[in-house]
Write a protein that binds this DNA or RNA. Sequence first.
DNA 1: CCGAATCCTACAGGATACTG
DNA 2: CAGTATCCTGTAGGATTCGG
Lengths: 125, 125
Amino acid sequence: MQPGTPDNEWREDCAPRRVLDLFSSKWTSMILHVLDTRLEGCARTGVLLRSLPGISKKMLTQTLRDMEASGLVIRRVYGTVPPAVDYTLTPLGKRFVELIDLLYGWGRDNADALDALKAKKGEGA
Amino acid sequence: MQPGTPDNEWREDCAPRRVLDLFSSKWTSMILHVLDTRLEGCARTGVLLRSLPGISKKMLTQTLRDMEASGLVIRRVYGTVPPAVDYTLTPLGKRFVELIDLLYGWGRDNADALDALKAKKGEGA
DNA sequence: CCGAATCCTACAGGATACTG
DNA sequence: CAGTATCCTGTAGGATTCGG
């Protein structure tokens, strides 16, 4: 390890950080997952809204836009009177969901171990 | 949502959320990665501190404690005069790093696509 | 129906100082 | 050396409202 060299790969513009940003958004991975698992890769705003209990319109749009910018989804607008918009999973997004699902699977696998954390966080009384 | 069936799997106590919590911590995955990649699965506090430029002592300890509670690392204390403590990666933790690295690999693979997001975020002027 | 703008709160996370 | 306590800030993200 050279002196002066940022020996690590955490320099702000590195892949890990980018992934971290994507993944740590509260909704990104959920949207992707739902889109992939239950909506066959494409859905309108309203459908997504209803498929993600707890999400607000604002967060949905905002997250979706970021995802679009990252190339995870494609946004299509139809110039109809009642505006229609839908979002389609890209191959890049699809690949990402797969990885996400791996993580989820791991979580499910070790739910008991992870419960400890929940317990610790929960203790407030 | 009826009292009957939350059709989705995002109920607060589900695996996805737990994983999300873990992963979205700013340092958890980095610590795990460094621990696994460069420190052979075990290191003392000071070493970790130096291996993770930018992290504060507080965040290191705090994150490490959470990780311990989740069973990702084992904390060992030696009752010596200058206190010595080290953290060892558990098999669970090791498995998690592997998945993390997959994500990182994906990020590296598609760095260009993800740059879009960075660009968008960066525009403030 | 879709999205943007505004406002507001909670909390992650950084700096610092102190204890054992 | 390791850890805790305190203080402080940025910001993610929720509720609401307006606009096309």
